[in-house]
Design a protein around this nucleic acid. Sequence first.
DNA 1: TATCCAGATTGGATCGTTCAAGATGGCGAG
DNA 2: CTCGCCATCTTGAACGATCCAATCTGGATA
Lengths: 329, 329
Amino acid sequence: MAEKVTIATVARHARVSRQTVSNVLNAPHIVRQETRERVEDAIKALGYRANQAARQMRTGRSRLIAARIEPTRDGINGSVLDRFLHGLTETADAAGYRVLLYTATDDEREIATYGDLLGTYELDAFVLVGTKYGDPRTEWLADRDVPFVTFGRPWDALDAHPWVDVDGAAGTAQATRHLLEAGHRRVAFIGWPVGSGVGDDRRAGWRDALLAADVDPSGLHRETEDGIGEGERLMRDLLVAVAPSAVVCASDSLALGALQAIRGVDPPVSVIGFDDTPVAAAVGLSSVSQPLGEAAARCVDLLTGVLDGNHETPTPVLLQPSLALRHTA
Amino acid sequence: MAEKVTIATVARHARVSRQTVSNVLNAPHIVRQETRERVEDAIKALGYRANQAARQMRTGRSRLIAARIEPTRDGINGSVLDRFLHGLTETADAAGYRVLLYTATDDEREIATYGDLLGTYELDAFVLVGTKYGDPRTEWLADRDVPFVTFGRPWDALDAHPWVDVDGAAGTAQATRHLLEAGHRRVAFIGWPVGSGVGDDRRAGWRDALLAADVDPSGLHRETEDGIGEGERLMRDLLVAVAPSAVVCASDSLALGALQAIRGVDPPVSVIGFDDTPVAAAVGLSSVSQPLGEAAARCVDLLTGVLDGNHETPTPVLLQPSLALRHTA
DNA sequence: TATCCAGATTGGATCGTTCAAGATGGCGAG
DNA sequence: CTCGCCATCTTGAACGATCCAATCTGGATA
């Protein structure tokens, strides 16, 4: 078994002091080129890697970012998180950070976990997926000056903290315009109850697109909790009440329900979902697609900006979704 | 801002030495009860948490487990990983470990990442999801005595390393028996090309169940790469060639394809998929369900067994899947 | 030749914890 | 009374990196 390679081993091998090796790693410009190259060769030859624990003890920085992995809720939207996490891991890696997972069943426990992670692992930052009105988690983190980014706008105050989000309204508006351009007039909307930021945003996009085309949206929309069954129920209701020729949904779950409700209806009703989940791809459902990899990358950008000494509050990022057209619209 | 609470702070507060505090944490039995309680009270009062980096420097153990997060392949089976990771995080947490994510595009790079993670973060163990014949990754890890578990059997040699797996053959057999008991005789199978351990295993379960019921399986099966389109194609082929009344598939993707192929066929053909992915639940597809949370928990069990000084090679774990019956069978 | 300066290098201290070894005190046996 | 033993607790050193202050080097300048 080979001896453990430390900074001292490298120093001995390159015939310099430990400090010089450290300088080559952390401030290369102050070391003479010839010396630097000698040290770099030694590092390569010995396969030296800086011990993160020791570094962390001095610097207080762990180069670790925490992200929460949620239990797959209805299973359909869970894969959004999955793809986001993958992007996060990849980008964080490139920036020299690693992603640590945690779970929590409620806000209180999640906050307790923050304390735990910060205390024992000295985490550098958190990435929160999804926020709600008056989120106690962001408040807790902000109070303690813990760097964090949310994927999802803070609906209370847009300048409360750095965030990355996808423009949901733009997505539903795009979907709605696509349907209008295809000749539809009675374009309905199935979404979530008023009060959730995300849901209201997505409905607003649909409404604005209709208004811009001089279509009156009143009566053309329904609200419910998320779920396939609910989507089916409300779509049947809409068919009877207003006989829409197309429908935009706030989620793929709702859209799948709508698809089941319109089976056999003639002429066929167009359906567009939201999130472009694997299910949508599987059944050929058109859907609004969020650039999750890009979103994750921008989260890392914002965090590294804060962590690497950029003291000004970074600018929030609002990304544009795209429309994945399949055969339901 | 409060002073940072270290073991010395606690020691001062409880009027003992640092070492005694350390003993209370790591070997409570050697400390007198009265003293122990005094120290524990101080820990609580001060909100002390052991600094992991410092602990790691002495012990060489990071209490970190690495798991790979893959890009969602066809999107449908990706959610299996998602659920597994969630279980892993939860169980690891309970055992005092944390899960660190990494990604890699190929085996070579994955192995390079192992070196990196071990060198800089001193990871305690790896969890690999899925293995193949002659997997270079397990070989590399085993050569270096790095603790690891695979979720998925090592198909070459079952005693090569600790593993947890779900009995795929038992799953397809159960699905097949269910169909046989419902009166079906011509129960077909759509699976993957011969040579993948998982695929061969799942096919074997179907074949054995048929043989046990005196049904000749020849001609009743088809093999292809995974995917909805492929499933549809092969199901059409089967319908023409052998007119099966039911089909068991090696994945939900294939089963979804089969579902599309049998639309309108009368009498309806029963379909059972594999993995019980969200898509299956969404469209009402019956499917073989893997106990992913349980699998993750057993992975952590095996690892902690190895890590906490249990030197004997742990026994592999083979879990039984269950049948999630919906309206396609 | 002596002085000075900037740049490069050195040794020592430090982060918070655990390990190894030493100190203390009480108690029973000889 | 002394010794040894055990249980308990304390002290000094070490893990591997970075920070700090001090020292060294070589070349330009007086």
